[in-house]
Design a protein around this nucleic acid. Structure first.
Length: 594
RNA sequence: CGGGGUGUAGCGCAGCCUGGUAGCGCGCAUCGUUCGGGACGAUGAGGUCCCGGGUUCAAAUCCCGGCACCCCGACCA
């Protein structure tokens, strides 16, 4: 394709509102333009990338026997009411009414419609299994779109849904998807970690996310090099480390003498302040946080050097949680924020107290079912808020001075021990490009999607759902593969295979050779972008590097001798080759490219 | 939803504090010179200064209200 016949509005300067590298480069390279917050135009180059990604996805989905179809994006509310999500999901769902005043929604995902279809059309176990998929728009009214195309309000998604008679069938469909996804990401040329993920506190079935490492990503994952354990930090269990200097506190199994003692700590609210004033390590302080679970206050405890992960608390409590307002803290504990603690709570108060496993006394460790690993070394006595203004307690002993529930609440951090093998965990940041869920009968039961089994018994279909965000794959690829000059597309998803730069458009010999090269490569099946614009050479080279096609062929001074240059975008030598041989040289560089 | 920031030519920005002629770079148009790493000169087009209200002889500039967009946090089938 001739550049003069293409619309590729490249720009020299970074857009002012871009933060992520991929955002800047995709705007500068003429791939995308923002239309409104979280809503993007895919320009011709960007759309070509998307089409290539989608093609790979289609091939791999077809390869596991999945069937493509297309579902509506405008849904009547009643399907969503039937699944319960019309009320469960808040403002993230775009809602509207039709002229007759009927409630409608813009689809943010398609479990309901697919299940609706299954409920009408699948009747017998003989109709199973099925995997149906589509590449379709999703609408989510994100509170804060960001990162260019990474977090948006309208986006393309490949979503597939499996329908099986039983759990064994679901396992098989799930495994098929894992196989297909491995191929897809490998072919798209992006690095990926498949990690255990939160299936949401309503489900509880197994789920995985595919995280592509990038500083622009919003997810953090915990990884163990030694045994392969990998999980999103919102889920990851870990053995708390970082207790240097505390081992001494553990040595004695004797009861510490005396009850907790009050210490005046005026205007000392944060862990750092308390630590400084009392001369105690943060790890020997109990951090007490008050949350509202629905309308019930709950006190959550973690070690002072740890961070609470709210979704872990939410999952444990089986309720959405939010930090309590200062007046709610006062109502629940009788004390102002900054000095609350688990000891000395109001008599008769019903404040539920949940402590992280790392606070569990050594004597209570182990032996309990489902106990998650606690801490390698833990203090015997802690400092904690006294529930009196400007006062803390020291010498607090968990289990003696108060008896909380224990749960895994803290966020895993780098250096913590792997819950499986104890080796140190690594934390990596990344983009969630895909996810897979075992839904079970969560949708089939309420929506009445059942089949008759061999015995003539009606059974709800066992479902799975599986998503991929093609634009996120593109962004992840750019994040992982770029240099100071621009994008270095993985070859399978580049907008064109070959960028043919004709240095002098008005030079007859160059025009002739460029045309011949273009035609020859095209005839061999390469997609060629022929820059025939009347621009200065430097301008065109800069654009070629910005746009990032894997192979560049330059037709310049030596065209009259039938000589052109070829080089890989990823780097390496720039070679002079006979124009007539460009096919084999392109093939060679292509094979070498990633 | 909390906190912060921005809104002036297609893009990137200055001007605002201290009210009075709207400016710079890039891009764009025409002509000429250039032509292997984002050229140079000349000429030119292009503005509801986000919107509404107020103060003032006079508002891009000061005041009030709104909107949009960005960033941090919260949220995130």
């Amino acid at each position: 394709m001739r550049a003069t016949a293409l619309f590729m509005p490249t720009v020299k300067e970074d857009p002012a509102d871009a933060e992520a590298v991929s955002h800047k480069l995709m705007v500068r390279g003429g791939f995308v333009r923002q239309f409104a917050s979280g809503i993007y135009v895919m320009l011709p180059l960007g759309w070509r990338v998307m089409q290539r990604i989608c093609r790979i996805i289609r091939e791999e989905m077809d390869g596991i026997g999945a069937l493509e179809l297309s579902m509506p994006t405008l849904h009547p509310a009643d399907v969503w009411q039937a699944s319960g999500r019309y009320d469960a999901i808040g403002q993230e769902m775009f809602r509207l009414q039709d002229r007759g005043g009927r409630d409608m929604v813009l689809a943010m995902t398609h479990e309901e419609v697919f299940t609706w279809l299954a409920s009408r059309e699948l009747r017998s176990y003989r109709d199973l299994p099925q995997i149906w998929y589509q590449l379709q728009l999703k609408f989510r009214d994100e509170p804060r779109p960001k990162g260019g195309v990474l977090r948006v309000r309208e986006f393309l998604m490949k979503d597939s849904y499996s329908f099986d008679l039983d759990d064994a069938g679901l396992e098989e469909s799930y495994a098929k998807h894992i196989g297909a996804y491995d191929h897809i990401f490998q072919r798209c040329g992006i690095d990926i970690y498949r990690v255990e993920s939160d299936s949401g506190f309503m489900g509880g079935a197994q789920a995985h996310e595919y995280i592509s490492p990038s500083p622009a990503g919003e997810d953090r994952i915990a990884l163990c090099e030694a045994c392969g354990y990998a999980a999103n930090v919102e889920l990851a269990r870990s053995v708390a480390g970082g207790t240097d200097g505390l081992e001494a506190l553990l040595k004695s199994d004797e009861e510490p003498e005396g009850p907790p003692r009050e210490v005046a700590t005026p205007e000392t609210r944060t862990i750092d302040e308390v630590s400084g004033l009392l001369g105690v390590l943060p790890a020997a302080i109990i951090k007490a946080l008050v949350y509202m679970a629905g309308d019930q206050p709950v006190m959550a405890l973690v070690r002072g050097d740890h961070d609470l992960h709210e979704s872990k608390l939410a999952r444990y409590l089986r309720s959405e949680v939010r930090a309590a307002l200062p007046e709610e803290v006062l109502a629940a504990t009788g004390c102002e924020v900054g000095f609350v603690g688990p000891v000395g709570l109001p008599e008769g108060g019903r404040l539920r107290v949940v402590a992280d496993e790392s606070l569990r006394p050594a004597t209570q460790c182990g032996g309990e079912d489902g106990a998650t690993p606690g801490s390698l070394a833990r203090p015997r006595e802690y400092a904690a808020g006294a529930n009196k203004p400007h006062t803390h307690l020291v010498g607090v002993v968990v289990g003696r001075d108060f008896q909380p529930e224990f749960a895994d609440l803290r966020e895993a951090r780098a250096g913590d021990g792997c819950p499986q093998c104890g080796q140190p965990l690594r934390i990596e940041q990344g983009i969630e490009v895909a996810n897979i869920f075992k839904l079970g009968t969560k949708y089939s039961t309420p929506l009445g999607a059942t089949v008759l089994d061999e015995g003539g018994k009606e059974r709800p279909i066992v479902m799975g759902s599986y998503g991929i965000g093609p634009a996120r794959i593109a962004a992840a690829a750019v994040e992982q593969s770029n240099d100071e000059r621009g994008i270095v597309w993985p070859k399978a998803i580049a907008p064109f295979d070959v960028h043919l730069v004709q240095v002098q458009v008005k030079d007859a010999a160059q025009s002739e050779v460029a045309a011949a090269v273009h035609d020859a490569l095209s005839a061999e099946g390469w997609e060629v972008l022929w820059d025939d614009r009347d621009e200065r050479p430097g301008f065109k080279f800069a654009d070629a590097e910005l746009i990032g096609c894997p192979v560049r062929v330059t037709v310049g001074k030596k065209a009259a001798q039938g000589v052109v240059e070829i080089e890989a975008r990823r780097g390496g030598a720039r070679e002079e080759i006979p124009a007539v041989d460009c096919g084999s040289h392109v093939r060679r560089l292509w094979e070498a490219a990633s």
